[in-house]
């Protein structure tokens, strides 16, 4: 499916964003192996089209709510690579000066209202931001991304009902990558499509989109966001996709059948889009130029992040409270 609403330049930009997300995540992985990135991390390799398609359909003042698999959603809203990579590396030039880490990327100035690492918790919080937009009359929309695993926790159901009864301007996006951590989602879920099959319980339309087709994602995002902005209430979209790697840094993903992985690698969103753009009139030179310029950006960000100082004790006790401090007694 090819978007009817985007011209070639806009599509080249969608290509650029996806390539940027891909190359960034690959670099993040390499930096793990070199021990520059500590702790854990959850990569979006293979899932880039969802982040890119939605971000392109959002207004700059719209809100993104992401999960611990949130590098892609943060970058797609226009946050530069350097502070994101520096955050992963625990440097003061990180997005949160190293205090949040990979799983909590936040950039309020870009509308990225947090990445949440407790499954499902951010769905009700996205409802709150949407409620606020509704009350303030700003026409802003909250877009909330979550994985298939989130659909079986209580907060998901509370949030869906809440959004429906208050007709909140929120779009719920389930990135269904078929695996709830190490377990096949259909084995632990009562319905085949964990989000779409639950939509009717909350009076919502069941929407499934090919999450590896950025044009299709963009189109469905435009419709859902317009509906939310017009005061017609929430939508829930299930985007089918596949993560190329394991759940997290420590997981090689060996529980997945080789044939399944091979099948989904054939549906890799980036080569597919590359081919489509060539068919629609882009030149190979244009696409290579994009890939090279992204590669240079990743190199630059890597060097800038590595050059960032490690945080000192001055940051440790800061910003528990709005006064900038952490005092709990006088």
């Amino acid at each position: 499916m090819s978007s009817a609403t985007l011209d070639l330049n806009a599509k080249l930009e969608l290509y650029r964003v996806q390539v940027a997300l891909r190359q960034f995540e690959k670099r993040a992985y390499d930096l793990f192996l070199e021990n520059y990135v500590k702790g854990t991390s959850h990569l979006s390799l293979g899932q880039e089209a969802i982040a890119a398609g939605f971000a392109a359909a959002m207004r700059p003042d719209d809100y993104t709510f992401a999960t611990y698999r949130g590098h892609a959603h943060t970058l797609a809203r226009g946050v530069p690579m350097t502070p994101v990579l520096a955050e992963l590396m625990g440097r003061t030039n990180g997005l949160m000066a190293g205090k949040g880490g990979s799983m909590h990327l936040t950039s309020v100035e870009h509308g990225v209202m947090g990445s949440y690492a407790i499954i499902g918790a951010h769905l009700p919080i996205a409802c709150g931001a949407a409620w606020s937009a509704q009350y303030r009359g700003t026409d802003q929309v909250a877009v909330c991304f979550f994985g298939d695993g989130s659909t079986n926790i209580g907060a998901f159901h509370e949030a869906l009902n809440f959004a429906a009864i208050w007709k909140l301007p929120v779009v719920f996006v389930c990135e269904n990558n078929l695996w709830m951590e190490y377990t096949r989602t259909t084995e632990i879920t009562a319905v085949p499509n964990p989000a779409a099959d639950r939509a009717s319980a909350y009076g919502l339309e069941s929407i499934i989109v090919d999450g590896n087709d950025v044009d299709a994602v963009y189109d469905v995002a435009v419709t859902a966001i317009a509906r939310a902005r017009a005061g017609e209430g929430p939508s829930m979209i299930e985007a089918l996709t596949y993560r190329h790697g394991g759940h997290s840094r420590a997981d090689p993903g060996k529980y997945r059948p080789d044939e399944e992985v091979a099948e989904w690698l054939k549906k890799d969103p980036i080569p597919m889009y590359h081919a489509r753009l060539l068919a629609e009139g882009a030149t190979e030179e244009q696409l290579v130029e994009i890939e090279l310029s992204v590669a240079a950006e990743v190199e630059r960000a890597t060097e800038e992040a590595k050059a960032g100082p490690t945080p000192g004790a001055d940051l440790l006790m800061k910003d528990v409270w709005a006064d900038g401090g952490s005092a709990w007694r006088n």
Binding site: L95, M96, A97, K99, G100, H104, T106, S107, V108, M113, G114, L315, K318, D319, V320, W321, A322, G324
Partner: peptide
């Protein structure tokens, strides 16, 4: 608030 280095 703490995790976001005071952004929120």
């Amino acid at each position: 608030r703490y995790m976001t280095n005071g952004q929120m």
